[in-house]
Structures are given as C-alpha cells and as structure tokens.
Nucleic acid binder design. Structure first.
Lengths: 117, 117
DNA sequence: CTGTATCCCAGATGATACTG
DNA sequence: CAGTATCATCTGGGATACAG
C-alpha cells in the first residue's frame, strides 16, 4: 500500500497539497511572517493546524523557523529557496484555473449512503 | 468551514489532488482506456476506489465515460479537452520535482503520540 | 467485465483548554 | 504570543462481497 511514486509530479503534489499550504506559501512569498500574523492572513485556520502545517513545511525544507527567544515569544517563518522555487508551479496552477473558469469542483454527495453520516 | 477559494491555484489543486488522479490522467493522456485496463495501469488501486475517482473526474468534467452497452460490459474512459488541458500543469509539477531532487516528503511521526495508533 | 454496498482504518482538520 | 495536548469529526482509501 505504500505509495509508489511512479510520477515525480506526485512528489510536488504532496508538498503543496493541503487545505492551507498553497495560501501559506502565497503569503510567505511576500516575506517572513510571524505565527499569529500568518494565522490572520489565512483567515480561519486554527492554532493547532497552522502549527502542524508549518512544522510539516519545515520538515519538507520549504520553510525556515526563526525563534527570537524573546518574551513575549516572537517567531518568524520564511520560505527557503526551495520553497520559493515553487512559485512558478503555483503560478501554473493559478493560471490554469483562470484560463478554465468552467473548471470547478462539482458537488459529490455519493458518500451520503453512510449509516449515520 | 467551507473552503474559501481565495487562490485559484486551489481549484486546480483540488481537481488533481488524490492518490491516483495524477497517474490516472497520465495514462489517459495516452488514449482512452477501459476500466480494468486502467486498474492494471495504476497497479494497486482497488475497484471501488478507481470507480470513485473516475466518477469524481467525470463530475469535474475531466473525463468522459463511454458505455458500449455490451455483454460482457465494455466501458471506456477518456480525457475531455479540459482534462487534457491539465497536461502542462502536471508537466510543471513533474519538472519541478526533477529540478529539485532534494525535495522529498520528510517522514513525520509526530502524530504517534496517540493512544494505540 | 464493470460496478455498487458494507465495513474499517488512518490521516487531516477543527474546537478547545492548557502552558511557558 | 507561540505552541502543545486532547477530543471529535469527516473524508479518502482499502478489503471484501455481491450484482448485472
């Protein structure tokens, strides 16, 4: 069952897949940001999830964390060169969506046959 | 909690995100394929999941299903022009991964603090 | 061969409370 | 402010059996 990365595109996909990563990268492309600042930018993400996503991107080498060791705490997140290099890819996805306004994720209620779901 | 597609890139991402969709599109770019043929191509996907993914892509307008109404059943799936138009996007992701061999999804065992999971 | 139904598990995300 | 822990929910995906 382990993923068989037959397609390099899947590697890229995994790095940016997630409800908030594309947006997080988008904001970080504008410059380093503090934790709460990013949370406000993303509008709606929870502390827990943001922390998780950031730690994932850190582990993936897309983001660097800088802790100023101050009280109150101040931590800044910034993209690494690798993270920044994703910009054209996101741009390609962005452009595709704009070029195909008819492309929208259709509603799928097929999973509604669940017992109590 | 409804998604707020602030970024068009997310629309594109949702259409191709999934364990099998990039590969499915890859194979379908080579031409129309029958159900079982596709299952063999993808190597490892289950009936149920393949059926689901295909119905999703159909609903998203990426794929068309052609039922020959024969016994035994013969059904062919093919990309729509919209589906085919995704090729450069997948290519961009593919190229990025090749250009950044250091980019690999790091292992994250942080969720292991669960009771028995 | 193509497809659906049922059951099950793991991961992602959210709500919330607690800590330094 | 930044971060973790715990709990709950939802969805994707797999295993398997059944159906036309």
């Amino acid at each position: 069952m382990a993923r068989q990365e037959g397609c390099p595109a899947e590697i890229t996909l995994e790095l940016i897949a997630g409800r908030w990563k594309p947006m997080a990268i988008y904001w970080l492309l504008k410059g380093a940001r503090r934790f709460n600042q990013l949370q406000r930018d993303l509008g709606g993400i929870t502390h827990r999830t943001l922390a998780r996503q950031l730690r994932e991107m850190e582990a993936d080498g897309l983001v660097v964390r800088r802790d100023y060791k101050e009280i109150p705490p101040r931590v800044e997140y910034a993209l690494t060169p690798l993270g920044r290099s994703l910009e054209p890819v996101l741009q390609a996805m962005h452009d595709w969506a704009l070029a195909h306004p008819e492309a929208r994720r259709r509603e799928r209620a097929e999973g509604a046959s669940r017992s109590g779901a």
